[in-house]
């Protein structure tokens, strides 16, 4: 078992990376690695609620974030600065990710065995 952090960086609206990072996280958690996920940059948009009726041409994978509970993925963080830059507030988020500042992210990463950046 290793402590692995996945850093999510891509918006869900123009890229499928977030989906592939999610699949990777689930696969790693399924074999008992201890996962942490940090949403930063445009990836904070992955955490917003969306209107399910809106037509959209990429698969909406955010519904699958609910799987985190089933896979015991509990360490979810969102970059506070990225939220601020986009004029978002942490209480607008659909997922209970804890806002963290740069120093906290640094400390988090330093405590991990592996970091994957998608």
């Amino acid at each position: 078992m290793q402590h692995i952090t996945i850093i999510q960086r891509q918006s869900p609206f123009n890229h499928s990376s977030g989906r592939e990072a999610l699949d990777l996280a689930l696969a790693l958690a399924a074999v008992e690695h201890q996962l942490t996920i940090i949403f930063t940059g445009d990836a904070v948009y992955q955490l917003l609620d969306y209107n399910p009726a809106t037509e959209f041409a990429l698969k909406r994978y955010q519904q699958s974030f609910k799987l985190f509970g089933l896979y015991d993925i509990e360490h979810l963080y969102v970059c506070q600065a990225s939220l601020q830059q986009r004029q978002l507030d942490s209480n607008q988020l659909s997922l209970a990710a804890k806002p963290v500042d740069a120093l906290q992210i640094q400390q988090l990463l330093a405590s991990q065995h592996q970091v994957v950046c998608i």
Binding site: M1, Q2, D23, L24, A27, L28, H33, Q114, V116
Partner: peptide
């Protein structure tokens, strides 16, 4: 292979991306 296999092989090594 699958992601699961990648995950299992990861156990003893350092990951570089």
């Amino acid at each position: 292979a699958g992601l699961a296999e990648f995950a299992m092989r990861l156990t003893d090594s350092k990951l570089v991306q």
